[in-house]
Design a protein around this nucleic acid. Structure first.
Lengths: 157, 157
DNA sequence: GATAATGTCTCGACGATCGAGATAATCGAC
DNA sequence: GTCGATTATCTCGATCGTCGAGACATTATC
């Protein structure tokens, strides 16, 4: 592969990084508008995703999803509950467990912000042919695979 | 556009989100390995990018890059300097300014971690034709444009 | 029923960030 | 040149998110 070709591929990597930054900024904006921190947004997204899959996340599983210890999860859920974004619901089956349900308003706010973006993205893909999108899809899957496999740790000397 | 076509496009959006998550995880891994927090990593990346452009970032411009107030930048640079990742260099032209230079070791660690990923990504693009990559590039630019334009604020009722 | 395992919460501590204001250097008007 | 305004960074005290250790209640195991 000649230099020119390599450079073109490196540029795609840079484009991907730029896209990543902008996508993070979308979450940051949601946080700013609703006076939340980034962890709170990640948590709401996790709860929302779970809800879409039909499951109600428990406090513990939320902690795993956002990588927080139990003490922090308690504080996190306290914040979200105080802000009216989620409700704690004791599981009647296992009364140690605390299920988390999003409020209507939080659901709506999330749909507005992130759903709106999703709509805009789909709209921007209108003019692409099925063949083109298939290429993009394959590329995204390949890049994701590479990124996911990227070394989890390099001993720091 | 029929339902099937819309669904295919929505899936690309989800793929993009997943890629975003994995890409963030790469930075998180770097942070874990080198005992830094996410802000520190963002700062090092910003300094590194600036260095690659041939400029030495000042404390103030770093603060803009990572969106931190001056008090926080001082603490941030203190941490990085204490860890041996950067040096403060007073600008002889304007002695109010503090330039930031990355240490060799930090430069090497960054190149190892992020440069390694860049190489792997380029390698994974080997088998794509120029035409295919052109499609991907156009798509990335279009999506980035949509994401960047996404509303900066929606008054929360 | 006693004991272990599980899920969440409380408490105290630490660290990242911030606003306000101090300090020092440069610029501009005269 | 001098003096006030501006710029760049730093110091200090306060706030908030996160954590480790451990308490508490509930469920599982024997």
């Amino acid at each position: 592969m000649d230099d020119e070709a390599t450079r073109a591929r490196q540029e795609l990597g840079l484009l991907l990084r730029r896209l990543n930054v902008e996508l993070d900024a979308v979450g940051q904006r949601f946080a700013d508008v609703h006076e939340l921190n980034r962890t709170d947004v990640r948590a709401l997204v996790a709860i929302m995703d779970a809800a879409r899959r039909g499951e109600a996340l428990t406090a513990g599983r939320l902690g795993e999803a956002v990588d927080l210890r139990s003490a922090s999860v308690t504080a996190l859920v306290d914040r979200l509950e105080r802000a009216g974004h989620v409700r704690r619901v004791r599981d009647p089956e296992d009364r140690r467990r605390v299920g988390l349900e999003m409020s209507e308003s939080a659901m709506a706010a999330g749909a507005e912000h992130f759903g709106g973006l999703a709509r805009d993205l789909v709209a921007a893909m209108e003019d692409y042919s099925d063949e083109e999108l298939a290429v993009v899809r394959r590329w995204l899957e390949d890049m994701t695979a590479v990124i996911t496999r990227h070394p989890r740790a390099e001993p720091p000397a």
